[in-house]
Design a binder for these strands. Structure first.
Lengths: 148, 148
DNA sequence: CCCTTACATTTGTATATACAATTGTTGTAA
DNA sequence: TTACAACAATTGTATATACAAATGTAAGGG
């Protein structure tokens, strides 16, 4: 990825700023490729993340707050995200019987099989994105990212 | 940054997926902090980037395509981004006399002094974000990010 | 039991972004 | 010169997101 071509905005860009910009550019690239990979499946990256989280629940329903903690988006959007997944029939939502303020969200079997297909597409994209990385590189970058 | 708490969506998450998710989370954090730092100045992160690019032009006007190449956003949004900066009086736009399809965009002196203030705020945010990074860490992470 | 506060989610609204279609301009080949 | 393709920017529209306010529910003190 050719950062220099893009960030030649200032004469002498300090390495701190360079790092921040570099990260944003990489993330944009990732986002773009992942979104493209999911497009044929008709879901957005965020919708995919919700499905993944729900699968991780292994049948135990998740409420909105739980989803929200594990996502980058804000609460109000989580509601609407789930709305869209319900329309597609990938999840269902019901009021929690023990605490009617909460809702319980589950992935449906239709959602699970759709998710399985998405996994394949995403896996390929990940491999493409990370093709220049050795296992040691991956460990290093994760370690460094932990410093944020 | 505690990734583990967030990405416990799946049982055994492979290091490739972990890396991608990790990057997204870090970028989200950066974005959030930068946006917050710019908020008192009344500009978005993207608007700030445009101003920075224009300053880097050193008086030489930039047209929209040029701005676009160096930004993460799409062409149509660049138009509207510049619109907003014009409203604030930070940039001006005129039709290029030699090729009337193009526009020439310049930062105004008002824009430059506003940008100088933003720089201070952003610098602080960067330092906060990168406080755990040694100079060697910064070099490493930039090198690794180049592999994307 | 009523009132207040906190909780969990939803709705309204303004702004941001992506994508496709459109406008206006230039260059060029018949 | 005119017709057509390519270029540069803009507009329309649908969707996404952030933020604030509102809704409905639960829990606890008087």
């Amino acid at each position: 990825m050719n950062v220099e071509k893009i960030i030649k905005t200032e004469k002498q860009i300090p390495i701190t700023s360079r790092t921040i910009i570099h990260l944003s550019l990489v993330e944009a690239k990732i986002n773009e490729m992942m979104t493209a990979a999911l497009k044929p499946h008709g879901v957005s990256l965020q919708q995919f993340n919700v499905l993944r989280i729900l699968r991780g629940q292994k049948g135990k329903p998740a409420n909105l707050s739980t989803l929200n903690e594990r996502m980058v988006t804000k609460m109000s959007n989580t509601t609407r995200l789930v709305d869209k997944l319900i329309l597609k029939g990938y999840v269902d939502r019901m009021v929690c019987p023990s605490n009617r303020r909460k809702v319980e969200i589950n992935i449906t079997s239709k959602g699970e099989s759709a998710l399985a297909l998405m996994d394949v597409a995403l896996k390929e994209t990940e491999e493409k994105l990370l093709q220049n990385f050795s296992m040691e590189d991956l460990r290093s970058i994760n370690e460094l990212l932990d410093k944020f």
